[in-house]
């Protein structure tokens, strides 16, 4: 197994105060290694999006520690003020819907982040083309998102998530809008990316058929994380 991709320790998230205090996550701890595809499952409202937002440096935890790679990004407070820079440089996001920028074509969507990170236009273009070829959608490089099918758009969204060479990918129900065949293809692709690009991937899913492709399953139960390794015994952390 690879090196540490995501490490979370005693992560707590409460909303409200006093009598209106709501505990959503209470002391979650787990590690996702680089190269792993991990599923995050839970009933609706159990806190999986909240957990994803905290790992993605979008929502500030109440307490706990978060490491992305070897860098601690949260330890009781954000380390460094620019969480957006962390997201830009370390994290790739994939959403339920592709959420590509509709006024930019495929290649512009994929090169947006690398160019924002300071990569020259030509180099960003070459790299984006490599990714699009890797995801077998290079022939659509000049197309607008509105001209592509749902599956094609999701592959472009994956290419965008990979374009800034992230250490982790957070995928929020990436197969929710796809049929079974396309869903399987996307999850296989994420598995391949995790292994070949050495990236830690956390994928929120409701579809149990996709769990077979994952290395590990994180389940939120009673505000804590239950980790299942496939064919392993479950244990609560």
């Amino acid at each position: 197994m690879g090196t540490q991709g995501i490490r979370v320790e005693n992560l707590v998230k409460n909303f409200g105060q006093g009598e209106s205090l709501v505990e959503v996550i209470n002391g979650a701890s787990f590690v996702v290694q680089k190269g792993e595809l991990v599923a995050l499952i839970a009933p609706s409202g159990a806190g999986k999006t909240t957990l994803l937002m905290m790992i993605g440096c979008v929502l500030e935890p109440t307490s706990g520690t978060i490491w992305l790679g070897e860098e601690a990004v949260y330890d009781g407070r954000w380390i460094g003020n620019d969480t957006r820079r962390i997201r830009r440089e370390k994290i790739g996001f994939i959403f339920q819907s592709h959420y590509l920028i509709p006024f930019m074509n495929v290649i512009d969507n994929v090169t947006l982040l690398p160019q924002t990170n300071g990569l020259a236009k030509d180099k960003a273009h070459d790299k984006a083309m490599e990714l699009l070829e890797y995801l077998e959608i290079a022939e659509k490089a000049k197309s607008m998102p509105s001209q592509l099918s749902g599956g094609q758009n999701q592959r472009v969204a994956i290419a965008r998530a990979l374009a800034n060479e992230p250490q982790i990918i957070l995928a929020d129900e990436p197969t929710a809008a796809l049929d079974v065949e396309r869903s399987v293809n996307v999850v296989k692709m994420l598995k391949k990316i995790a292994q070949e690009q050495n990236v830690a991937v956390i994928m929120v899913t409701h579809d149990e058929r996709m769990l077979a492709f994952c290395d590990k399953i994180l389940k939120i139960e009673d505000k804590k994380i239950v980790i299942s390794k496939l064919n392993d015994n479950k244990h609560i952390v």
Binding site: R84, R85, I86, R88, E89, Y99, I101, L112, T116, N164
Partner: peptide
């Protein structure tokens, strides 16, 4: 707004 939220989420700076 949706695109702006996505851009902010993936790390595009406000200035841009």
């Amino acid at each position: 707004m949706k695109e702006i939220s996505i851009m902010k989420l993936i790390g595009i700076p406000n200035s841009m």
